Simulated assay, not measured.
Amino acid sequence: MDTHFIDDLAQRLAAALPPGLHALRQDLEHNFNAVLRARLEKLDLVTRDEFDAQARVLARSRAKLEELERKIAELEQRLA
């Protein structure tokens, strides 16, 4: 998980507070950060590298499937 992204998001949320609440900004920013981390950890996420690796595996599998489908079609034509 990209901690920089979470920290940046928590800072932006705290900065969006009304002017009267800026005294609480640091405390709220810490709370935003904790809540965001807790919620994101519950999601079933994968890293970009893992996603890319699985996309390559899927592309190879799809190519093999298409080749097998082509071969089956050719065999069916020969038998007909």
Rank of each mutant, 00 (worst) to 15 (best):
Val57Tyr: 07
Asp44Met: 10
Glu66His: 01
Ala63Tyr: 03
Gln54Ser: 10
Leu43Tyr: 07
Arg62Gly: 06
Ala53Tyr: 08
Val46Glu: 01
Ser61Pro: 00
Lys42Cys: 11
Asp52Tyr: 11
Glu41Ser: 13
Leu65Asn: 04
Leu43Phe: 12
Ser61His: 15
Leu45His: 02
Ser61Asn: 15
Arg48His: 06
Phe51Ala: 02
Thr47Tyr: 06
Glu67Pro: 00
Ala53Leu: 13
Asp44Arg: 11
Leu68Ile: 08
Glu41Thr: 11
Gln54Ile: 04
Arg60Val: 04
Gln54Glu: 13
Arg39Lys: 15
Asp52Leu: 14
Phe51Ser: 01
Glu66Ile: 10
Glu67Asn: 00
Val57Asn: 06
Arg62Leu: 08
Lys42Phe: 09
Phe51Gly: 00
Leu58Cys: 00
Leu68Phe: 10
Leu65Met: 05
Glu50Asn: 04
Leu43Gly: 05
Ala63Asn: 09
Ser61Met: 14
Glu41Gly: 10
Arg62Thr: 14
Leu68Thr: 01
Ala63Cys: 01
Arg48Ile: 14
Asp49Met: 07
Leu58Asn: 14
Val46Ser: 01
Glu67His: 12
Asp49Ile: 05
Arg56Thr: 10
Arg56Pro: 03
Arg60Ser: 05
Ala59Val: 08
Asp49Phe: 07
Arg56His: 08
Lys42Val: 11
Ala53Val: 10
Ala53Asn: 12
Leu58Phe: 14
Glu69Arg: 14
Ala55Arg: 11
Leu65Asp: 04
Leu43Gln: 14
Val46Asn: 01
Glu50Asp: 13
Leu68Lys: 10
Arg60Met: 10
Arg39Asn: 12
Val57Ile: 12
Ser61Ile: 05
Arg48Ala: 01
Asp52Val: 09
Leu43Val: 02
Leu45Glu: 00
Thr47Trp: 05
Asp52Thr: 07
Arg56Leu: 13
Gln54Gly: 11
Asp52Met: 15
Leu45Met: 12
Leu43Asp: 03
Val57Asp: 13
Ala55Gly: 00
